[in-house]
């Protein structure tokens, strides 16, 4: 590993000033991706900015009316350790508990998972399905972007030079809603998704009022399959509707063949995982109705 400088600003404005002065700087939250990449000689950086001391990036706040504010540096264990958050967003609890092992969950953040922009990121399809947005700060002020717009290519995101992700906002769960993320890995833990599906549904009178479906590991970025959710809207809640949406998700997937699976296999998994994730989301929605 090459030498680098380290800074741990206490405020957002300090961090932005450092970032403005060092465009090549990289953010350190849990470091579970960054340190591995630096050791492997990928994405070298002269300055590492540790964002764990900044209040806005450590905020974890849920309010029944406004929803969830999730600071970019909040480690996974805080999410599944928070009873109110876990009750309101069982799917988020689930995702925070399946990224890495216990040690990793003590450091790794959902914000980091998003900024790392891996096609296989486990949290991103769910954030897309939940309709989450990103609060982005830069020298010129702040802006908001939808999670499905955030990743632009493997390892690349929409953050411009001098910008950083402050937090994510997840809308409050509506009555009759449920969500789920399901990934396929050959082992039972400690693995990278061969494919994954994040889904959120809202049910009303035995029908889908709305649905959002996103996939991981089957395209250069986490893939929002808007048409699959749109297709479900207004359809009765049954196996046929779910199977139809699963086929649309499968058709939208653009996977490659690599050491984690073949194209054909991954496409097939999109259908299986979307169907199974929808079944779980529907069950959750029915439980809260």
């Amino acid at each position: 590993m090459k030498w680098f400088d380290y800074a741990a600003p206490k405020t957002l404005s300090e961090a932005l000033a450092l970032l403005a002065a060092h465009p090549g700087a990289r953010m350190l939250a849990g470091g579970t991706d960054l340190l591995v990449q630096m050791r492997a000689g990928r994405k070298p950086a002269d300055l590492i900015i540790d964002i764990k001391n900044i209040a806005e990036l450590n905020e974890l706040r849920y309010e029944r009316a406004s929803g969830l504010t999730l600071g970019a540096a909040v480690a996974c264990y805080r999410i599944y350790g928070d009873a109110a958050v876990s009750r309101a967003y069982p799917s988020l609890h689930q995702v925070a508990s399946l990224i890495g092992g216990t040690q990793i969950q003590g450091r790794a953040s959902i914000g980091g998972n998003l900024c790392n922009a891996a096609p296989s990121a486990d949290s991103i399809p769910l954030l897309i399905a939940l309709g989450a947005t990103c609060r982005i700060a830069g020298a010129g002020g702040e802006r908001v972007a939808r999670v499905e717009e955030f990743c632009t290519a493997p390892g690349k995101n929409i953050l411009a030079a001098g910008e950083l992700l402050v937090s994510m906002h997840v809308p409050a769960p509506r009555p009759g809603s449920g969500a789920s993320y399901l990934r396929f890995i050959p082992r039972n833990e400690m693995d990278i998704a061969v494919a994954g599906a994040g889904v959120a549904v809202e049910l009303e009178n035995g029908k889908f009022r709305s649905a959002r479906i996103a996939l991981s590991s089957v395209a250069p970025t986490p893939l929002f399959v808007r048409e699959a959710g749109d297709w479900l809207t207004g359809k009765p809640v049954n196996g046929e509707s779910i199977a139809g949406a699963a086929e649309i998700a499968k058709a939208a997937a653009k996977p490659i063949t690599d050491m984690r699976g073949t194209k054909e296999y991954r496409r097939h998994l999109c259908s299986v995982l979307t169907r199974r994730a929808l079944e779980t989301a529907v069950r959750r929605a029915q439980e809260v109705q």
Binding site: P186, R187, N188, E189, M190, D191, I192, M259, R260
Partner: peptide
């Protein structure tokens, strides 16, 4: 990515 079985 070299997937040895784990205890799980």
């Amino acid at each position: 990515d070299y997937r040895m079985p784990t205890s799980l």
